[in-house]
Amino acid sequence: MTTKKPPVPVALLMLIGIIAISFSAIFIKWSSAPASVQAMYRLLFTSLLMAPFVRPYSGALVKLRLNDWLLLAASGFMLALHFLLWMGSLEFTSVASSTMIMALEPVFIMIGSFLLYKERSSVSAVAGLGVAIIGVVFIGWGDIGLSQDNLKGDLLSIFGTAAVAVHLMIGKKLVARMPSYLYSLIVFIIAGAVFALYNLATGTAFFDYPPKEWGIFALLAVVPTVFGHILFNWLLQYTSATTVSMNILGEPVGASILAYLLLGERLTGLQWGGGVLVLGGLACYLYVGARIATREEERQRSYMQEAQVLPENAS
């Protein structure tokens, strides 16, 4: 991990990012436009904001191979599928339920990493994610008591979370050989194009929306995307990925508080209990991951120190 310091304390920037992404579900709930239209303009406006700063990465752009473009297309498609399913889930279930379920992203990544790369996790990490899964069952059980639509929303959120996990796993492979900024911009453009084709195929209106909706589209691009996700990506140069990933825990908490204050949403005791299990299990998982990462960093540092000592002794 780099020792550079950002112009603003990391903790403050993390708080700003968590608050920003917590507003995502609120803006979606406020909008009456179809989820596919909200997502399309969110991605389009974000791409327009990013495009003026892409020139330094033009050299990397021309070096992309056909296989890279195919992976970028797959990543963009999965990101579009994530937005379509997760944003659609908010039409049927509460903000708290949907965002708490979406926090299960590490579960799907762990399963995918094991199936594709044979990466194994510690028993403690698996136990933590197991507790989180039990929490999701509690949330779903509580939603069944409210209505069948709530359960439908929970299922859409689960599938949307699986889609974004695939998107992130593809991205992990691509950013190892291309700038993350360029990767994000290309994927946003591809996902936006997927939504444009989807809306065209389904006959969904592109422009017939009141000024309020256009304001929400812009807010979705600026607040949760620029001051949320892009800010977190920028913070990776100043702090560890494990620290940045703590926003997974912050979003459902922040979104639930905002939904209570701004939307009047209330949860049952069973749902709150499930939420506590989800966040507690994920906290355990991230804590174990941080310990493993620290040990690996210390092992590499020790190895480098020994490598420097050996030539001196030989001389």
Rank of each mutant, 00 (worst) to 15 (best):
V175E: 01
F195R: 07
L70D: 15
A33C: 02
E213M: 15
V278L: 00
A205M: 02
F227T: 08
S245G: 09
R120I: 07
V54H: 15
L61E: 05
A255Y: 06
E251Q: 05
A218N: 06
P210I: 06
V223R: 01
A11T: 06
M110Y: 12
G88T: 11
Y198R: 07
Y117D: 04
T204Q: 08
A35H: 05
M169F: 08
G88S: 02
I139F: 00
V54D: 09
M102S: 13
A11F: 10
L267R: 05
F83P: 04
M110G: 00
L168E: 12
S58P: 11
L71D: 08
F217Q: 03
D149Y: 14
G289D: 02
L200G: 12
G250S: 10
V54P: 06
K29M: 04
M14H: 08
W214S: 03
K212M: 09
L219F: 09
E312H: 09
L151I: 10
G112F: 05
D143A: 11
P52L: 07
A314F: 11
T3G: 09
E105L: 10
N247I: 07
R42K: 08
L197W: 15
I158F: 03
G142L: 03
A307L: 04
Q300K: 13
G275T: 00
I19P: 04
H229G: 04
V309Y: 14
D208H: 07
V126T: 12
M246W: 06
K4L: 12
M102H: 09
I190M: 11
M304N: 13
F108N: 03
Q38K: 09
Q300M: 15
A33W: 00
I158E: 03
G275H: 00
T243N: 15
I189L: 13
D143S: 04
T242Q: 11
L15A: 14
V107D: 03
H229L: 08
G76M: 05
K4A: 14
L270N: 05
I101W: 00
R65N: 11
S121E: 15
L84E: 14
Y198W: 07
P252M: 00
L182I: 09
